[in-house]
Amino acid sequence: MFRLFLALNFLLLNLFACKGGYESCKLKITDSKSIKYQTLQIPVLKNKRLLFSSHLPNAKIIKYDPFLSLYLVEDRTKFEHPFKINNHLSLGVASVNNKRAIEGKIVKDQIGLNNFATFNEPLATPALLLNSCCALEGIVTPQGIIQKEYLERFLKSKSAQYGDIGIRVDDIKKSITITRVNPFIKDNPFQEGDTIVDFAGKKVKDSATLMRKILFSKVGSTHSVKIKRDSKYFTFKVKTQKRYGGGYISDTFLEQKGIYFSKNLTILKIANEFEGYGLKVGDRLMQVNGVKVSIIADIREHISDFKYFASLLFEREHFQFFVNIKGKVKSNK
Rank of each mutant, 00 (worst) to 15 (best):
P82V: 09
F83Q: 02
F83C: 07
F83L: 09
F83P: 00
F83T: 02
K84Y: 12
K84L: 12
I85R: 01
N86G: 07
N86Y: 05
N86W: 03
N86Q: 09
N86D: 14
N87F: 06
N87T: 10
N87L: 07
N87D: 13
N87I: 05
H88D: 15
L89P: 11
L89I: 12
S90R: 02
S90V: 05
L91R: 04
L91H: 05
L91C: 04
G92Y: 05
V93T: 11
A94L: 07
A94H: 05
A94N: 08
S95G: 08
S95P: 01
S95Y: 01
V96D: 01
N97R: 05
N97E: 11
N98I: 05
K99D: 15
K99S: 13
R100D: 14
R100H: 15
R100K: 14
A101E: 10
A101S: 14
A101C: 12
A101P: 07
I102S: 06
I102D: 08
E103W: 07
E103Q: 13
G104N: 05
I106Y: 00
K108G: 04
K108E: 14
K108M: 10
D109Y: 11
D109N: 15
D109A: 15
D109G: 13
Q110P: 07
Q110D: 06
Q110L: 09
Q110C: 11
I111P: 00
G112C: 08
G112T: 07
L113F: 09
L113Y: 04
L113K: 02
L113C: 08
L113S: 03
L113E: 05
N114Y: 03
N115I: 15
N115F: 14
F116Q: 03
A117D: 00
A117K: 00
A117M: 03
A117C: 02
A117V: 01
T118S: 14
T118C: 06
T118D: 13
F119C: 04
F119D: 02
N120M: 08
N120G: 08
N120H: 10
N120A: 07
E121W: 10
P122Y: 13
L123I: 14
A124K: 15
A124Q: 15
A124P: 13
T125P: 04
T125N: 11
P126L: 09
P126T: 09
A127G: 11
A127W: 02
L128V: 09
L128S: 03
L129S: 00
L130S: 04
L130F: 05
L130Y: 03
L130E: 03
N131M: 10
N131L: 09
N131D: 14
S132G: 08
S132H: 09
S132R: 02
C133Q: 04
C133L: 09
C134K: 00
C134P: 01
C134H: 00
C134T: 01
C134M: 01
A135I: 02
A135E: 15
A135R: 11
A135D: 15
L136Y: 01
L136S: 02
L136M: 08
L136G: 02
L136T: 03
L136P: 01
E137H: 11
E137V: 04
E137I: 04
